[in-house]
Design a protein around this nucleic acid. Structure first.
Lengths: 230, 230
DNA sequence: CCGGAAATTAAACACGCGTTTGGCCCCGCG
DNA sequence: CGCGGGGCCAAACGCGTGTTTAATTTCCGG
């Protein structure tokens, strides 16, 4: 009680006190603070992880007060999930598009080409995969597993199985292991990109990306094609 | 002041009070608490990340008081680096062994086989790669880059380059991109193991591991060999 | 058999966190 | 012109963190 009234008194003294002009609505809202918070959250959370980044840091990066996180998103967790929803949207849409367009007879290598092109266009996807899919505590892990097990994985496995049946692919090819290799070749270069970029003379601009995609698809095609020496 | 004396009084009351027998050196030290702390740290830090795990949690998992972390390792950070040193030791030793044994003319696929066998034997290596090598804030990143750029990478690239020169490997093969694919096929399955293990009927026991290694080495060999249709 | 070193503990401290509160200041409607 | 509400902020609260301290017990060499 005593402490409370003391605090109230102090607050009242500093509240309607002297140097106030910082508080209040800004003159002409040129910025969309909600979007700025989402962008800052995407960059920080996907780089350093949820626990390692404080709501204060995100707010500071967006040039805002920590309280705005709760004003717009209810909580730090709310900001996080909102960011994840926004960041995963293009990936989900791209997969839908690819599956709709795949003519059923498509070459797995062509699918890989399209897949890598999408990832190359969204630089935060590697961090998302690293933190939310492959890390044991990832929040989107279950969603990803459901999505992948239900839609993407079986399609690719079926594509490979049909290729084996038609004699186009190696007869001793295990379709599920081939899917693992498919994902390895398509995803790992992006995950390892920051490290490998400093080790190899490997640029990841548009040209370097095209070279990587060409190389990976060729290697997968040649490695799975029938009539190759094992 | 008032609060301080109040706390002191309370401490005095609970301090030399009645039920004390928990404090002090344990009768016969059957356990190696230092090793227990290192093991708990390895499991928790490599699963959830440094910031997400508190020193109290590690101590609790090892059945010890949080103060023991500082007694043995000076700080939480000290425990972490000690754990990393211990966890990376077998990987470094294995690479040394592999490089010493490699007869210079070795097949890259054979190197990949040995590489994957080593990783399969140490279940925490995937987490280590995920958190310390490929994540942007990884503590061992610089060490890894130095080690890799200085010793492992160039050796493999040279092996591939020689294969291309001798006409054993595809003439249009970029050796550096081939190294990327080499690492993709060798490392990614382990990183993705917990996710893929729930999607595919893929077991990662000794038998499943052998099948994966055989498949990956075959795919890489066939995908890089000369005389395959591109 | 005694005294100091080693090992362990409970308790406290300062600090940063996520969140809450209260109020300022501008805009647009009446 | 006035005023109500929406956008925004400073400050505070309670809690958990890493770390320190002091106390306590056992072990072991002389």
């Amino acid at each position: 009680m005593a402490t409370k009234t003391a605090r109230a008194a102090k607050a009242a003294r500093t509240g309607p006190g002297r140097p106030r002009r910082t508080r209040g609505r800004p003159p002409a809202a040129e910025r969309d603070l909600r979007a700025d918070l989402l962008a800052a959250a995407r960059e920080l959370f996907l780089s350093y992880g949820y626990r390692a980044v404080s709501a204060r840091q995100v707010a500071a990066k967006a040039g805002a007060n920590p309280a705005m996180v709760h004003y717009y998103f209810g909580s730090k967790q709310g900001l996080y999930t909102a960011m994840l929803r926004e960041a995963t949207a293009p990936m989900v849409a791209a997969v839908d598009r690819m599956l709709a367009e795949a003519p059923g007879q498509a070459d797995p290598a062509a699918l890989m080409d399209a897949y890598m092109r999408v990832i190359g266009r969204h630089p935060w996807i590697p961090g998302l995969l690293l933190r939310e899919v492959f890390a044991p505590e990832g929040a989107y892990r279950e969603d990803f597993i459901r999505e992948f097990a239900g839609r993407v994985g079986p399609r690719v496995v079926e594509l490979i199985r049909r290729g084996v049946g038609a004699g186009r692919l190696r007869a001793d090819l295990d379709p599920q292991l081939a899917l693992v290799s498919f994902l390895s070749l398509a995803l790992f270069p992006f995950i390892a990109r920051p490290v490998l970029g400093r080790v190899l003379d490997q640029r990841f601009d548009d040209e370097g990306l095209a070279a990587l995609i060409g190389h990976s698809t060729r290697l997968f095609a040649a490695g799975t094609a029938a009539g190759t020496p094992t």
